[in-house]
Design a protein around this nucleic acid. Structure first.
Length: 910
RNA sequence: GGGCGUGUAGCUCAGCGGAAGAGCACUACGUUGACAUCGUAGGGGGCGCAGGUUCAAUUCCUGUCAUGCCCACCA
């Protein structure tokens, strides 16, 4: 017997263990022989991670699909795993070292530090997997992978070397986005533009050939900049070739203030006459545009900032080489050397002002690129990095989506994907970190690079190259985490080995992810999958929204608006959270999560619990002979018809990822149809002494509940599994676990019985509404007199008399040709129902009420008549629509007649 | 600057060519043996604004005003 209340916390833990023990999540478990394959690779969470709402949504969606297909008998694989998350993990461990006041990473040294990270990974890296289990996700945990496990590392090496040998990976010295906080390069995707209030400084750069006079504009050229500190590295001033103001200056030279370097005035289209002064200083080593110009005009590149973005003049060879003899040099070095970029900015402005070079300052709003991890402004820095030429790979990835080998859902995201792919730029894949896949490149004494899987192979090659043994130095850099993530769909299945899993499960069926990962991950998996496997990594991508707080702002630790899903699970149960997320999954862009809503769906699971208790208390049982077609009672045939409809609805909608529609349909069916009506309609029948009838209801209620458990299981796995187990009877042959029970396929339909019961429901609702409107207390049971009942109405009334009496507060039903005195009248389906109220009847109120009904009907009739008189409507509209309108009109006309009669009678029944 | 969204009941959102929906909140009544994490009944919407297409528009198109996100950025 079921407890009076449902304890989600206790139950969820127990059920989770039971699933694990039974191994129901194992790939292919319960699959029918020769069945279709359904495979998903999980977006591997970071080992550093703990479960957040994004994970909760993402995994709920996947789990619904997986559980659904598993029950449908497919060969299901949900491949779990975790991502080593280079920067994030390294930061976490470093922070931990700092908190514990241990030695720093640098003091510790690379080998020890990496050992430390592994240790951390083993201690706490499994946290998120356990949290996912609490959500109920049914991955095949026995085959969890890690993006730095042995096999995966092999895959990474394999891909890197292949791409290198095809010249798709190469090393280059150019400007990169450098994060001066994390001391590593980052890719374009890892920067975030932030709008900032700053200033635009106008500087006077004196012309070489005349004596500088700050009040004589003919002796200088004005340049505007938002980054004064980079002027130390200026190697030109650019003006637009068509800018009349500066025509005469093109080709002349200016003396760079403070530094004294002679730099040319060049003509370049990049300079926009409308912006600033029309003349722009060019710092090729510290600005991406300037870098391009530098190449075009063969300018020197002078790097004046180091990796921590501090000024380096002393000992900076390229800088000194560029300097002319200048007496101020020592002073300059003394002032600026070692200052970080922002302090240097202030100092330089000060010095420029002192020298009368500061022309003007204007307020300005500019977008400053920040590192997404460190949160500090990135610095374009000239460094050696590894790049991947992705434009070739992108072509195939574009074509695959274009030609429908991979479908992106919702379709609107396809454009985002294609647009990015079509404008793709080389991908900087090296990171100056320690935690990650170290690049398999070794350098000889002269800098020649040998890219090989192992040091041994590199040495062998180097020996041949140099004609003798040499010492090689390995490249210190590691790969961008996303490089290995891009291999996930096939590397997690065993690639580069030719495994059976790959043969069965690749390409995977669907990838489920948030839109924030389209570029980072989806695009790159597409490229790598197509390149390495020759096939798309997934047949479909389902892009879902991100979860925000109830005010619509993105959840983030810094904003402090994080809602911890585990707390919600504790409070409302995993089922309630899952159901809420599923029903909200339709939302276009963002999900604003309101805990109040979760409470609502927690109530839903309670409702189901209590419905089951009702069944159990009334002797429901799983009748092995129960066959829907054999039922006799209209209520049963009606609910079975409805059940069929909802089954079809849910099945169809989950198949096309419309989880909200499926959840909504279930909610309405269970609460409204099943609990509010079926159970209520069936209650009086339980009083029946007829064993056959009793048996039919007891069998039907069990059958319906079982089907509900199955349909609801993907959404609310815990409570349904629990109810499944609790309602098991010894004698039945039901499978012991709902998770591996076959998905229902019902094809029952009885339109006649349905029409009967719908009539019944509408009648009861009408009567109840009437009573409430007239404030007739529940304690007052009224009699019901039916006027001119046709045969069908008569039959129905007789058949459902008990229920009507019970649910509408009626003490007796009688038939008559005349209206009893002192009655209120209700017209329902062309038949007038009267309730004699005696002294309770108030004529004025009754008249107003009937008049109101009549007015409404007259309006409707007018509207529909007009429509049906419209020739063009009759010609153009679908026949079904026209038919529906005609029927509706007939109905209203009858209602009008009966209501008018009722109004007329009002005067005769006092 | 380019792209993509969103504007529907007090709140959070479904619906997206054929009589305006759900949950929460609100009002009134109600503990009759499944359930107060409940029941019954009810109030509350020119479906942002303006045009257009259509027999018919909340639904399609154009414009417009809000609002959000993504991408790229002029020093």
């Amino acid at each position: 017997m079921l407890n009076k209340t449902y304890n989600s916390q206790e139950t969820e833990r127990r059920i989770a263990k039971a699933w694990e023990k039974e191994g129901v999540f194992r790939a292919g478990a319960g699959a029918n022989p020769g069945s279709d394959v359904f495979s998903i690779v999980i977006p591997p969470p970071n080992v550093t991670g703990s479960l957040h709402m994004g994970h909760a949504l993402n995994n709920t969606i996947q789990d619904i699909l997986i559980r659904f297909e598993r029950m449908r008998g497919k060969n299901v694989l949900w491949q779990p795993g975790m991502d080593h998350a280079g920067i994030a993990t390294q930061m976490v461990v470093e922070r931990q070292l700092a908190e514990r006041k241990e030695t720093t990473r640098q003091e510790m040294g690379r080998g020890k530090f990496i050992e430390r990270v592994w240790q951390w990974r083993h201690e706490s890296g499994g946290l998120i997997a356990n949290q996912l289990k609490r959500l109920g996700v049914s991955c095949d945990w026995s085959r969890a992978r890690f993006t730095m496990d042995e096999g995966f590392s092999k895959a990474v090496l394999e891909v890197f070397i292949t791409l290198y040998e095809k010249n798709l990976i190469y090393k280059d010295k150019r400007l990169v986005n450098w994060d001066p906080g994390l001391l590593t390069a980052i890719s374009d995707l890892e920067i975030e533009q932030k709008e900032m209030q700053c200033s635009l400084w106008y500087f006077r750069y004196p012309l070489e050939e005349v004596l500088f006079d700050p009040v004589d504009p003919s002796t200088f050229i004005v340049v505007a900049t938002t980054r004064p500190e980079t002027m130390l590295g200026d190697t030109a001033v650019a003006v637009n070739p068509h800018d009349e103001r500066y025509q005469r200056l093109i080709g002349k030279k200016v003396i760079l203030p403070l530094v004294g370097r002679r730099i040319p005035i060049i003509a370049d289209d990049y300079a926009d006459p409308q912006t600033g002064s029309g003349a722009v200083k060019i710092t090729p080593a510290h600005d991406f545009h300037d870098f391009e110009i530098g190449h075009r005009h063969d300018l020197r590149m002078i790097s004046i900032l180091n990796q921590k973005a501090a000024v380096v003049l002393q000992g900076n060879v390229s800088f000194l080489k560029g300097l002319e003899k200048n007496s101020m040099l020592d002073a300059l070095i003394a002032c600026l050397d070692g200052l970080d970029r922002f302090s240097a900015r202030g100092k330089i402005i000060e010095m420029m002002d002192e020298g009368a070079y500061l022309h003007d300052i204007k307020e300005h709003i500019c977008m400053v690129p920040h590192g997404d991890r460190s949160g500090i402004p990135i610095e374009p820095l000239l460094t050696d990095q590894w790049y991947m030429n992705v434009s070739e790979l992108a072509k195939k990835a574009i074509a695959a989506v274009h030609d429908g080998y991979t479908a992106i859902m919702p379709h609107a995201w396809e454009k985002t994907y294609l647009n990015w792919m079509e404008n793709i730029k080389p991908w900087c894949i090296s990171r100056q970190l320690w935690w990650g896949h170290q690049i398999p490149a070794w350098y000889g004494p002269d800098g020649t690079v040998f890219v090989k899987k192992t040091e041994k192979e590199a040495i062998t090659e180097a020996t041949i190259y140099y004609g003798g043994e040499v010492r090689l130095v390995r490249d210190k850099d590691v790969l961008d985490t996303w490089f290995s993530s891009a291999l996930w769909p096939f590397a997690a299945l065993g690639w580069p080995e030719k495994t059976a899993d790959l043969a069965i499960y690749y390409p995977t069926t669907i990838l489920v992810t948030g839109y924030d990962l389209i570029f980072f991950w989806v695009a790159r998996m597409m490229m790598m999958g197509l390149y390495c496997m020759g096939q798309v990594p997934f047949r479909a991508v389902y892009i879902h929204a991100l979860v925000c707080d109830k005010y619509g702002t993105k959840m983030s630790k810094s904003k402090g608006n994080i809602i911890n899903p585990l707390e919600l699970i504790d409070k409302y149960g995993a089922d309630a959270l899952r159901f809420t997320l599923a029903i909200m999954a339709a939302q276009g862009r963002d999900i604003k999560l309101d805990p109040g809503r979760i409470a609502g769906y927690r109530n839903f699971s309670t409702k189901l619990w209590n419905a089951t208790r009702f069944g159990a208390m009334n002797g429901m049982f799983h009748d092995p002979d129960f066959i829907p077609e054999k039922t006799r009672l209209a209520v049963n045939r009606w609910i079975l018809t409805e059940l069929t409809r909802v089954t079809e609805d849910v099945t169809k909608n989950i198949s096309v990822c419309r989880l909200n529609e499926a959840a909504e349909a279930l909610y309405c069916f269970v609460w409204d149809s099943f609990c509010d009506w079926y159970i209520e309609l069936v209650k009086p029948i339980f009083q029946s002494q007829d064993q056959y009838i009793l048996r039919e209801i007891q069998g039907c209620i069990a059958w319906c509940l079982d089907t509900i458990y199955k349909l609801l299981h993907p959404f609310m796995p815990f409570v349904t599994e629990e109810l499944w187990m609790c309602t098991a009877e010894k004698a039945t042959s039901r499978p012991s676990m709902l998770a591996v029970t076959a998905w229902p396929d019902l094809y029952f339909c009885d339109e006649v019985a349905s029409a009967d019961v719908k009539w019944l429901i509408d009648l009861i609702s009408g009567l109840r509404s009437l009573r409430a409107e007239r404030n007739i207390p529940v304690t007052v049971r009224t009699s019901l007199v039916v006027l001119d009942a046709d045969q069908l109405t008569y039959n129905r009334l007789t058949c459902h008399e008990d229920v009507i009496k019970r649910l509408a507060g009626i003490k007796g039903i009688s038939f008559s040709k005349n209206v009893p005195v002192m009655s209120i009248q209700m017209v329902f389906r062309n038949v007038t129902f009267c309730m004699p109220l005696g002294s309770l009847l108030e004529f004025d109120i009754e008249k107003t009420r009937l008049q109101k009904v009549l007015n409404k009907v007259l309006q409707d009739i007018e509207r529909i008549t007009k429509k049906l008189k419209n020739e063009r409507f009759l010609v153009n509209a679908k026949t079904t629509v026209i038919e529906a309108e005609r029927e509706r009109l007939d109905k209203y006309l009858a209602l009008k007649d009966r209501t008018e009669e009722a109004l007329t009678r009002l005067w005769t029944i006092r």
